[in-house]
Nucleic acid binder design. Sequence first.
DNA 1: CCAATCGACTCAGAAACTTCAAC
DNA 2: AGTTGAAGTTTCTGAGTCGATTG
Length: 729
Amino acid sequence: MRFDSSDSGSDSDSSLDNVPLKRKLSDSEKHGLPTPPLSNAPLISDQRLSSDRDDPPESDGELDSVNAPADSELAEVTDGSDNGLLDDKKDLPNPKKRRWTTFEHNGVVFPPPYKPLPQDVKLYVDGQPLNLSLIAEEMAYIYAKSMHLSHAQKPLFIRNFLEDFGAAVRDCTGVEITSIERCDFSKILAHIEAQRKLQRELPVEEKEKVQQARQEEVEKYGYVYIDGVKEPLASGFRIEPPGFYSGRGDHPKLGKYKRRLVPEDFTLNLSEGVKVPDPPPGHKWGEIVHNPRAVWTARFFDPLTGKDKYVLPTSGSTTSNASEQKKFDLARMLKREIGYVRKYYMNMLKSTSMVEREMGTIIYLVDKFAFRIGHDKHEDNADTVGCTTLRCEHVTLKPPNRVVFDFLGKDSIRYYNEVEVHPQVYTNLRIFKRAPKQAKDTVFMTSGMNMLVKMNAILPGLTPKVFRTYNASSLMQDLLADVPDDLTEAEKVERFQDANRKVAILCNHKKETPPSGSLRIVETLQHTLLEKKWDLWYHALELANSFSEQAEALRSTKPWIFERDSELTDDVIEEIHTRIYEKKVKLAYSSSKSAAVAKRAEAKNMDVELYKKELLDRQLKEAETLKEKLANLRMNGYHPRKLGPAKVNIVLNQIKKAESDIRKTLQAIERKQEYSEVALDTSKTNYIDPRLVVRYSKRHNIPLEKFLNTAQRKKFEWAFDSVDEDWIF
DNA sequence: CCAATCGACTCAGAAACTTCAAC
DNA sequence: AGTTGAAGTTTCTGAGTCGATTG
């Protein structure tokens, strides 16, 4: 037992009194026992770093079995005079360091100016057309373009929109708009639709011209030359047009107007002596700076959010590749040290210092559930939380050691998970939840910033995010290792996707699902399923009617086959029958038109048209006969004709086929649904070490294209060569 | 000194756009 | 054989993290 039983689960925990009310680290707490001294002295010896097979035992990732490190062991790791991680830290991007000597680019692309609507296209308020100022009209136009989107339906969005748009309308017309219902955008909407249609129907060569112009724009503005090397920029070099704020979740500023940006809003970053790009005529750049410690080319202050926005090099650029690789190598470093790190924070869990105890608990959660750390944020943001900002209402305790987490995380994506935690973690959570709180009802007092300091003290370079990367990549590696060699390529691709999906679930990456049943493919599958269920039941009835040995045998082994599925109501069966009939008719028409039929006619030396017609007639007749037969079955209560002994085996096979079809269809539906809410791309692009993908591809000799799309392959080019099929994360 | 804020970067899902394939 | 919807891909910009700076 790692923890004193008197400590865990006991109400008499006297250290409760020590719960500090301030998010503040006193010196003694920071260095509180029983954790090792946390000076800047390196913690990790060379030997520990160089060997990844040396880790203290862990039972398949279960923390519960991790023992606290013996003092001697800690002493040993504390003693190391040289620290590989620390060395590595020297290579981390050092913001004080110069990143370039020459830094040259052509500035940014502004969106085209607003083109006024034709005279006869107006906004109507209370049935009256309004003569809007250019700016008010532009707002109306932009709103009309996106009014169908779901976030634009939210009352908050409409309220904020009406506030800003209403002011603009009042300024130019004196009309007060008090509700959106009084506004009629239909004329503008129709105009937008007409424009779109025009765009769609543009001749091919015109479309190509547009494409080419866009390409030239990319060539001119889409790159920065860092020390003479051409590096691609993220799409932000195209400046965002005016719009209405589209924050996620319940963001207080949803629907507020974002005005058009002008060159005066921008700061450009360039090296001294290079040509400053010409601002658009009649304008000046806000500021020109020479900041060699940063790689952004342009920046503007967004007055709505109060934050700076940057134009930066994008994936595939040298700087991005380097930090990408650094990120994964740091995560690999954590993998090698994870035994040590886990012991360390498991030790903290029962510290007499409440701050230490909190921090241990936080690291446990970050490690085990891949939570983001969470930082304090300003109130006029959506109410989302990370680990250190969890409030008591987000954490429900269920004795003896189950916990339900239910909160909105980044992008207001809901995290819901009921889990088992280590008993000590459970005890700690109970103490923290019960402790008297200041204004905010947060579970923990420690801030995310304090956690950064703490983690860096445990392992230089370690941050909360590293746990996410490490756990994602590590899980991916384990899951891929389980894939046997003798599967087909398709199966191996599927296994890769399944692994990818499990990683995405760990990271809680989600996507909006289309309303259930709206997917045609799911509907078809559901129909197929019902059809197969009908098949099964019908053939079972036939078999039962044979009074054969086989029927009796089946009745004793699989009695359920003879039972009518609860979904097969009379109405449903009638629908199934209609579909079967319609399908047959459709098939008749399409097959009679096929080239194969024409060929057959020629082979028989018959008139093709005549042959086709005869065939069609025959098949249509068959369809009618089937229809009647099915109708009769329904009418007389599903009594198929008596089955002769010769047919028994045929029907048995049909039953077998129906059974397997049902199984396959159910699997297909399940797979479809399982994938419908999970976003695979985010983890593939940001958390799974691309070298794992390359290794899998090489090991099973499957082209990389099956796993990564064009953009991802470009992004991960740096990983292609360094990896063989034995590479280990 | 240290908590709050700033600056610069990575991560994120929705929507738009493009291509593909099934009727 | 053209339409239509789904799947794949790109664009867009918002929302985090985290190291440095500041008051």
